[in-house]
Amino acid sequence: MPMESEPLFPPLARDALSQRIARILTDAIVSGQLKPGDRVAESVIARDLGVSRAPVREAGRLLESAGLLVSKANRGFFVRTIDAEDLDALYELRLCIEREAAARVVREGRLADILDPLRALIEQMVALSAEKRLMHQIVVDLQFHRLIVETSGNQRFLAVFDKLASEIQACTALIERVFDEPGMIARNHYLIIEALETGDPEQARSAMDYHIGVARKAVVEHFRKLEAEGGA
C-alpha cells in the first residue's frame, strides 16, 4: 500500500480561518512553495490544515481580489503567473504615474481636499496591520494610492491605475511578506503626506520615488533570488 505524502501545510486551529489561510497561502507563494501556475486545490489544503473547504474557498477569493490567485471556470484557483521582470516593469510604470500624480496634487493646490481622508486611510492600514488582517490592509493601501492619483485630475493616470489595480494589490501583498517588520509599509505612508504638505512638487515626487522604490527593490530582488535558486 503506497504511503501518503507528507502534508504541505500543518493543521490549523480555529478563529478567523479564511484570513489565516490567506496568510499561509501568501507565504507559500512568496517563498516559492507554491509556484506560478500551480493549482490551489481546496480539498488538499483543507485536508492538510484540518479545516472544511469553505474557509479555504473564501481565502482563495481574498487572494484572487489581491491579485495573487486567478480562478478558472470549473477548475478552481491557480497561482498567478508573475516573475521578477513583470514586477520590475509594473513598479516602473507605477513610479511614472504616481510620482507625477503626487506632484500634480501639490501643484494644483488639491491636497486640502484629501488630507484628512489620506490620514484616515493610514490609520486604518496601521490598525489592520496590528490585527494581522493583511488582505483588508491591501485594499486600504490601494485606496490610499488611488485617491492621490484620482485627485491629480489626470484621467489618463487614473485609467491606467485602475487597469493595474489587481497587480498593484498583488505587489502590496508581496511587500508585506518580504519585509521583516510587519506594518512598516503602512506607516511609511506618513512620509508621503509630509512631502505633500511641503507644497513642493519635487518633494512630492521624491517621497513617492522612495516609497515605491524601496518596495520595488525588496520585492524584485526577492523574486530574482527565488528564480535563481529554482532555475525558473
Rank of each mutant, 00 (worst) to 15 (best):
R80L: 13
Q143S: 13
A218D: 01
H136G: 01
P10E: 12
A89N: 12
A165T: 11
G109T: 06
S18V: 00
Q19R: 11
I45S: 02
I175Y: 02
E197K: 14
M125D: 06
G153I: 09
V160Q: 09
E100H: 12
R177I: 11
E150I: 04
I122N: 07
P201S: 09
L142G: 12
E150V: 04
S31L: 08
E6L: 10
R47H: 14
I114A: 02
L68Y: 11
I168N: 13
G183N: 01
G109Q: 11
L12N: 01
R104P: 00
Q169W: 02
I168K: 06
A215Q: 06
F9A: 02
M184P: 00
L8V: 03
N154T: 03
R20P: 03
P2C: 04
R104E: 14
I175S: 01
G37I: 07
N188S: 14
G32P: 00
P36I: 13
R94T: 03
L87M: 15
L90R: 08
A130W: 09
A228E: 13
L69M: 13
A159V: 08
F144E: 03
L128P: 03
K163V: 10
A228F: 03
T198E: 09
V139R: 15
L63Q: 05
V106D: 13
E167Y: 13
T151V: 10
K217Y: 11
I148W: 08
L90H: 12
L128V: 00
S5G: 14
V40D: 04
F9N: 02
K35M: 08
E221F: 10
S65Y: 07
A101D: 07
A228N: 08
A170H: 00
G60N: 06
S5A: 15
P117K: 05
P117G: 10
I168Y: 06
F9K: 03
S152W: 04
F9W: 04
D15V: 14
V40M: 08
G50Y: 11
P11G: 05
L158V: 11
E98D: 12
Q143M: 14
V178E: 04
I24C: 01
R80E: 12
K225V: 10
A46C: 10
Q33T: 15
V51G: 01
Y91N: 02
H145E: 05
E58W: 00
A84C: 06
R156M: 02
G199P: 05
S129I: 01
A54R: 15
A130V: 08
H211R: 06
G153E: 11
D209A: 13
Y91C: 00
A204E: 06
G50L: 11
G67Y: 11
P11S: 06
D200R: 09
L34T: 04
R187Y: 03
